[in-house]
């Protein structure tokens, strides 16, 4: 599951500031009677690059989906960029337009071209004029290295290309925080690298990122913090060097031996 990252990482813009981007305190969530997230506490500072890993069903995806309220939490507090997530729809939409999200299955809009996928939210949510939105979209499509695909439909692109479009689509909203929900899990090995490269570039520019991923090479190369979750709680977190060399809990050791052991 782990791809070695060969290139040198430019760390000049990767600075963690004191400013808090996301504050989660005593958050609990249930699916029916199943307790998915148990008393989660977490502070994310601006500029942090956090990798969240853990076995399937450990609640890691649910956790980041709570941050833009794709899932509702039942108790505790989530404050994103100074806005508390409650059932107030205005706050939710405000948070969502500040937080970009990349999904495992890309979730591009198949009835729209790549360019339209990228300009839709800026035009309809941010009220950006169409021409300007298209310029911004082309800028980000160049950045993810597929400007020549702008007028094709998602169905005509490979999985890796689609995922890069999905990243560009999120970036077009100029988000302050990016959430990645297993962005490479649905991709062939050859395509994983191109998506990881895009994510590394984003990290190099100082984006605040939360990534649920099993790409431990990526974690070692760019993360400043790795969080290990199991059974809906944070079991262990540390800076990546220490986390991989010297895991403390037995559960973490077992997990790491399973995913790195072959």
């Amino acid at each position: 599951m782990s791809e070695a990252i060969e290139r040198a990482i430019d760390r000049s813009h990767m600075q963690v500031s004191d400013e808090v981007a996301i504050q989660i305190s005593q958050m609990n969530k249930w699916y029916g009677s199943f307790h998915v997230l148990r008393d989660v506490n977490m502070t994310v500072h601006k500029g942090e690059r956090i990798v969240i890993c853990g076995p399937s069903g450990s609640g890691k995806s649910t956790l980041i989906r709570c941050i833009n309220r794709l899932e509702e939490h039942q108790s505790g507090q989530i404050v994103v960029d100074g806005i508390e997530l409650t059932s107030d729809l205005k706050n939710i939409d405000k948070v969502r337009s500040e937080v970009g999200m990349v999904f495992q299955h890309f979730n591009l809009f198949p009835h729209l071209t790549i360019l339209e996928n990228c300009t839709l939210a800026p035009i309809w949510v941010r009220k950006t004029p169409k021409k300007e939105a298209e310029e911004v979209a082309m800028h980000y499509l160049k950045k993810v290295k597929i400007p020549e695909q702008a007028h094709k439909y998602p169905g005509q692109l490979s999985g890796g290309q689609q995922q890069r479009v999905a990243i560009a689509r999120s970036l077009c909203m100029k988000p302050r925080i990016m959430l990645f929900d297993e962005p490479t899990s649905a991709l062939d090995p050859e395509m994983i690298k191109e998506v990881l490269d895009t994510m590394i570039e984003l990290a190099e520019e100082g984006m605040t990122m939360l990534c649920v991923t099993h790409e431990m090479g990526f974690a070692q190369a760019v993360a400043n913090r790795v969080i290990f979750m199991d059974q809906g709680q944070i079991v262990e977190q540390n800076e990546p060097g220490e986390f991989f060399r010297n895991p403390k809990s037995e559960r973490t050791k077992l997990f790491l031996s399973q995913i790195l052991g072959h």
């Binding site: 794709l70 999904f103 591009l108 939210a121």
Partner: peptide, 9 residues
């Protein structure tokens, strides 16, 4: 979910 995540009402 993608529509929601982009902030569309």
């Amino acid at each position: 979910e993608a529509a929601d995540a982009l902030g569309l009402d």
